[in-house]
């Protein structure tokens, strides 16, 4: 059993109004020193077997097909260990 993490983020050039709203709220809550916030999604994929190259290739295919819309989002895949 292994856990693979897929992070999905809007591409840098795509406006993220949710991140901006969070960034604007932080100073009101007393948190200073934050220049920007971007909001994304994290997927935790539990594998039946080990996170070998073949399994990771499958996860990348999942990300490409469903988890991310690569028109507007980038994704990254890593093994949690």
């Amino acid at each position: 059993m292994a856990r693979v993490i897929v992070d999905v983020m809007l591409k840098p050039e795509i406006l993220d109004p949710q991140g901006q709203a969070i960034a604007r709220a932080l100073p009101r809550l007393g948190f200073s020193g934050v220049s920007a916030v971007r909001q994304g999604k994290r997927f935790e994929i539990e594998l039946d077997g080990p996170a070998d190259e073949a399994a990771l290739a499958e996860v990348r295919k999942m990300a490409e097909t469903l988890l991310a819309n690569t028109v507007i989002e980038d994704y990254s895949v890593r093994v949690e260990g």
Partner: peptide
């Protein structure tokens, strides 16, 4: 169709 629809800028 190309492109995508995302959260309204105003939220």
């Amino acid at each position: 169709l190309p492109g995508a629809l995302t959260r309204n800028a105003s939220l």
